[in-house]
Amino acid sequence: MVEDRPLTSILTHFVLILGVIAIALPIWITFVAATHDELRMNQVPLPLWPGTHLLDNLTQTLFGAGLSGSQGAPVWLMLLNSLAMAMMISFGKIAISLLSAFAIVYFRFPFRMTCFWMIFITLMLPVEVRILPTFEVVANLGMLNSYWGLSIPLIASATATFMFRQVFLTVPDEMLESARIDGAGPMRFFFDILLPLSRTNIAALFVILFIFGWTQSFWPLLITTDTSMTTIVMSIKQMLEAAEQSPQWNIIMTTALLARIPPIFVVISMQKLFVQGLTETDK
């Protein structure tokens, strides 16, 4: 910075640390809740410092009975369901967006612009505004309570398609000409040249989409009734309801901890890709 007076510098760090504390507080408090036993978690005031029961809580949550009195699926299964859903959504979105961007950029064909506008329209139709009829479609296709139902309706993406379109437009034309002279057909060009050239964009998008997929709760809540299809994120909602009868906050918050570890891990460990992905897709 321009000037570096100690006082301003101290103030700057002070405000930032305050901000970090404010932002991290909810995460901290719920982490602390996951480290105490049930008894302690029913005494006011609740603890602000970690206890010693994290491992107990983890084993009970992951492999034990979980929340007492609940008929839910074991938490490890919910984690697997979440992982499956997040992966299917990310890979699905990336795959179909890559393919349609490739078609739109590298081919000239009748109804090309119609396709463009149809893809664009998806932006204007968030799932929240067409809940009921979309639910009906999924039900009629027999996709309730399945991984397909969880992921496929969410994988159309104008944002991702337009991002790849832009990436492809920056690939020099000579790359294609050169490949054509080398005898590469369209799909060969796509796999040998275009995919490797877009791999950081793909990785960045993957980070964002993984989080998008993992954090879905509304859609899974609607279309899964079978407890074996429960995802970890939607189970939190069910546990909150159960908490009104038996407030086992240590277990609920341990589940919450497990539910947020994977996406937070992804964000922190792939921060550069995350920021790139976020600014490229704004989603």
């Binding site: 909810p26 408090i29 994120v233 939190i236 906050w249 947020r260 996406p263």
Partner: peptide, 20 residues
């Protein structure tokens, strides 16, 4: 230190605040 909440699902964010 400031970007984590992005990775927290809306429902989960709700749960954290309900608890607090």
């Amino acid at each position: 230190l400031l970007i984590w909440p992005y990775a927290v699902a809306p429902v989960l964010a709700g749960a954290l605040w309900v608890f607090m």
